[in-house]
């Protein structure tokens, strides 16, 4: 090989871009960790972490957010899996309109969504032209608010969950699988539980983890609906503390990393696009 060809093979600029990118990515993380470890003067230690985790409000809000995430994931699966399955199997003509709906959350960002949700569900819903109240305002009682926020989160996660599930169903060709199972005499219940779900497990998991990453730290919906979630807690903590928020920020970064790492593991490197900001 001649020298020219050899020089051409050293990706000089690629390295420059990569190193710049790595610096940009890692510096804020390093700064956060560095700051979070310096709660006590001249000592490097985990005091900020201990303090942050010891706060009973942290545990309460964090558990609450996890509960919301779990409910959101369950609701998403119950709503989306049968829909996507049915469309693949029997109703391909509904594909376009359903795909359009799943893209709507990109057009209606969280702040707008919560605006609309509050305006609709903070007043009682009446049957038109009568005074009969159909539904008490959801925002006035706890379970109502929980339902509202979970519904909002399902909407925010809709594009990711739907695409994940739909791609999963396409790659395993659920139609043929269903026909094969039917010809072997399986019932609908058996088909869904024993054939379809296990085959789209990876897709479900990655959709679920992404939803988790979106929900656990979410602030916009949570603060406007006034629920005691982790996002607003962290925000308030940041108003009058310095070190603990840094510690929790880094911890939530690790949590996001964990979720994304697991997705990578399940989907074999097909990265997923972003959530709500």
């Amino acid at each position: 090989m001649n020298i020219l060809a050899r020089i051409r093979r050293i990706p000089f600029w690629s390295w420059i871009w990569f190193i710049l990118g790595a610096l940009y990515f890692l510096l804020p993380l390093y700064a956060t960790v560095n700051f979070s470890l310096r709660m006590e003067r001249d000592v490097i230690g985990f005091k900020a972490y201990v303090r942050a985790f010891e706060d009973p409000d942290f545990l309460k809000t964090f558990m609450y957010s996890n509960m919301l995430a779990l409910m959101t994931i369950l609701a998403s699966i119950i709503l989306i899996v049968p829909t996507a399955y049915w469309i693949r199997l029997r109703l391909p003509e509904a594909r376009r309109v359903v795909e359009f709906i799943t893209l709507l959350p990109f057009v209606v960002p969280a702040i707008i969504l919560v605006f609309g949700l509050i305006r609709i569900y903070s007043s009682p819903i009446k049957i038109p032209f009568t005074d009969t109240t159909l539904l008490q305002p959801l925002t006035t009682f706890e379970i109502g608010t929980d339902i509202l926020i979970v519904a909002g989160y399902v909407v925010l996660g809709l594009p990711y969950m739907y695409r994940s599930v739909d791609t999963g169903m396409r790659t395993v060709d659920v139609r043929t699988l269903t026909e094969a199972a039917q010809s072997l005499g399986a019932s609908w219940f058996t088909i869904i539980v024993k054939v379809i779900l296990p085959n789209i497990r990876a897709a479900l998991l990655s959709g679920a983890l992404l939803t988790f990453a979106i929900v656990v730290g979410e602030v916009t919906l949570a603060s406007f609906l006034g629920v005691p979630a982790f996002g607003p807690y962290l925000f308030l903590l940041g108003q009058h503390r310095a070190y603990e928020p840094a510690a929790l920020s880094f911890a939530s970064f690790l949590l996001t990393w964990l979720a994304m790492g697991l997705i990578q593991l399940f989907t074999g490197g097909q990265g997923q696009a972003s959530g709500a900001h």
Binding site: I214, L248, S249, F250, S252, F253
Partner: peptide
Amino acid sequence: FSGVASNFAGVPLAFS
């Protein structure tokens, strides 16, 4: 990393 960072937003990002 991009998968993580593109989902790492909101309060923790601001604090970082």
